[in-house]
Design a protein around this nucleic acid. Structure first.
Lengths: 202, 202
DNA sequence: GTACTTGCTGACTCATGAGTCAGCAAGTAT
DNA sequence: ATACTTGCTGACTCATGAGTCAGCAAGTAC
């Protein structure tokens, strides 16, 4: 029985390659990653990879975009569609969403961007537009609605949606750097949100 | 008049080289930095650099250590020596200390560690021992003293000194990634500390 | 002045890894 | 079967940059 040396699978290749690339980038970082290693994990030759992606940089951008796309939209949608009170939403869906972030691929992308971002300003802009700006916007909208409904009061805290994100940021960095040391990231995030809630509740 | 091609300055060389290396690493990151560029900026030949530092990695470690050394001790000392009330200390020296961090060399080191840390676990340990552990310890000691003096009340927040750091972390990452977009990092940090204070004040 | 030590130079080597390309073989049409 | 298209392979090139080293010259001792 003859094993064919390869099969033609034009459609799935790009996705398989970016998936493999994500893994390798996650483990080694951008500069540490070898294109040949990516090809190997995707079960493909180096040459083929270069048929789908012009350069390593190109591949990198494709990976970031594949991870980032539409990831925050669900939050915005949840804010708009929910019928919960602001307090219940914060304690429920919002908290759940935030707890998930540090373990998600987004954390990997953040690390990659911190490391190599300054070389690819357009990538940073892309991330800004599709994650940071949207994410902060969604939180702002949520708070704003709470205020106009009389559930929250306006204050300094209201002006900084970044404070909602802050414990998530700490959790991500902690996880990236100090895998050995334990930190209850869920509890950390929850504590911050509870403190904010206590502070802005009308 | 003859300019001598070089002078012998055995004592100052290492410091001059690590200073130059810090600059280059800050601009280009570890992998992006060229040893020759470091040498050039230090006004020295590549060969000499390798006389003082065995490898590029060695140089990197030296840079991190030179930045990190004793940086947090001043905080711990301030906590122990102050005669201010806990509230006044938090609003004064502690706040000032934290505002300074995002613009300091420590932010550069954090970026370098996030980027390359996983390749140098002993460096991460070093950073842990000398910055993170000490820093969190100092904050914990401060809070603990406040509680025992009856100025603060124990709560969930008290268990997470990371919450004091969180806005500093956000500020650092923001500054590193989004130089273009403005964020009043001082105000961000202040707002978080005020919220914490309001929350734990007895 | 002469001899000696050693801080210092810069042209070199050599490994590595991104990117190329001539040709091969899987699939398709006739 | 035969001819043809094109997804795919992997050995190659070539630039880059870390690390070396033979020799030079600044400082020192006599």
């Amino acid at each position: 029985m003859i094993e064919p040396r390869f099969q033609r699978r034009k459609q799935q290749r790009p996705g398989e390659i970016t998936d493999a690339a994500f893994e390798v980038f996650a483990e080694k970082g951008y500069t540490g990653a070898r294109v040949e290693e990516v090809a190997k994990r995707a079960g493909v030759s180096k040459g083929l990879l270069y048929l789908y992606f012009k350069t390593k940089e190109d591949l990198f951008k494709a990976v970031v975009k594949s991870v980032v796309i539409h990831r925050v939209d669900s939050l915005r949608a949840a804010v708009e569609e929910t019928e919960l009170s602001s307090e219940a939403f914060l304690r429920g869906p919002l908290l759940e969403f935030m707890k998930r972030v540090p373990g998600s691929p987004v954390a990997v992308v953040v690390r990659l961007l911190i490391a190599e971002g300054h070389r690819y300003p357009d990538l940073v802009d892309y991330y800004w537009d599709n994650v940071v700006s949207k994410g902060l916007g969604a939180i702002r909208a949520f708070v704003e609605r709470g205020v106009s409904r009389g559930e929250f009061r306006r204050s300094e805290v209201t002006e900084f949606p970044q404070l909602f994100i802050a414990p998530v940021m700490v959790s991500m960095i902690w996880t990236i750097l100090f895998t050995k040391r334990v930190l209850d990231t869920d509890k950390l995030i929850e504590t911050q949100l509870e403190m904010i809630l206590a502070h802005i509740r009308a």
